[in-house]
Design a protein around this nucleic acid. Structure first.
Lengths: 220, 220
DNA sequence: CAGTGTGAATTTCTTCACAGCG
DNA sequence: CGCTGTGAAGAAATTCACACTG
């Protein structure tokens, strides 16, 4: 069912998808691996091997059909369905993300926010209502929420994670510096700005080009 | 001068640093590679090899001295100096980042913000003054700014990057979905939330555990 | 003939396993 | 004796290079 799509490949798929969408918007019917790889910033052979591993095939002498490419990559990434999101923590970052249109556009509508501050509860931010944590269970149920985004202060991030996991959420995106402990049927990715800045400073200092996009802590 | 510190190693250093700081805060004098690796979420042999490649040595039978560890990793990452930051784009995300204490705490003080909106210019956000783009040159000079953080709308992100690079900034952290073109003496890392969500949805859908923290697009 | 798909070579990264030091 | 440091094995990822096809 999942014949060996490597982690390295998965990490590149969003770049391929973005590049393909961009080129499709130019009304090009197809692309060569050379061109698409250029746009995505990878080696052409790597791109061909990645696509082959997804069983996405091109036409020899021509290239890959762009519409097909977009639909197949979307399929593999699971983007044919919507993934409603709840944002836990209505501080600055939470607000920024709620106002940020990019979520809904890409199939991750922000269905609700949760915060403990009584003065925020009941308000709306970017059209998204803020609820108290006690309502999380109901929200998850009613809004079919699949993803939890954690933008609380670091000190309570683990608490937020436990709450989300306790209500059946199995995908977490963590914006705090805290490393979260989660059961291993839960997928958690962390975006840590400090990590990014530190890596940036390493490469700057050494004058080396940053090759691969490692970054991002993570757990199962 | 830089005897082979691999990209994979660099990507793990921030996690080691964080773990070491955490353990040092518990007043432990030293740690074994087993313990530190556990905290950082890597294999103990990987940790030992990484540290050895930085010429950080432990004591056999004992472990690694925590103070030494923290200071040496900081040194390698270039965190012995401050890296003043300018945030370009005072929208929601820019504001959130300006208000976010974590920057300054970790040696990346937010020295200034830049925005084109006349009603924002002259105001302060989280104690950080907002300037018009025309003043960027002076700011970079006077505040010794080394890093540019791009939080503009995607459509003008390239423009922002050009502006920063034009004023001598050689480290960019890009929060837009746009892929930036930069000269190759400039280090640019991108944090793209859509990418993270898409990867999350892949692993969730397949029920596979997300192993390595690939993520993050990037260019030279 | 342009460009895919893929064996094979190569490089890089990880893990094992253990000699040897404090 | 516990734990580092590392040679060697193994696994994974990347890149080469070219046969082959539309």
């Amino acid at each position: 069912m999942d014949p060996s799509i490597s982690d390295a490949t998965v990490g590149r798929l969003p770049a391929y998808l973005r590049a393909a969408i961009e080129l499709a918007a130019l009304s090009l019917p197809s692309v060569s691996s050379d061109r698409l790889a250029e746009e995505a910033g990878v080696h052409p052979a790597t791109l061909r091997r990645d696509l082959a591993s997804l069983e996405i095939t091109g036409t020899r002498g021509v290239g890959y059909d762009l519409k097909y490419l977009v639909s197949q990559i979307s399929l593999v990434l699971g983007l044919t369905q919507e993934w409603p999101v709840v944002i836990v923590g209505a501080g600055n970052l939470g607000k920024a993300l709620a106002n940020y249109g990019g979520f809904a556009d890409r199939g991750f509508p922000v269905a609700a926010m949760v915060d403990i501050a009584p003065d925020l509860v009941g308000s709306e931010i970017g059209g998204v209502p803020v609820h108290p944590p006690s309502e999380l269970g109901r929200l998850v149920e009613e809004e079919d929420i699949l993803v939890g985004v954690i933008t609380t202060p670091a000190a309570v991030a683990q608490e937020a994670a436990d709450l989300l996991v306790g209500h059946g959420i199995r995908s977490l995106l963590n914006f705090t510096t805290e490393v979260l402990e989660v059961p291993n049927n839960v997928t958690c990715r962390s975006v840590d700005i400090a990590t990014e800045l530190q890596i940036l400073s390493f490469y700057r200092q050494r004058g080396r080009a940053a090759k691969t996009g490692t970054g991002v802590p993570l757990q199962s």
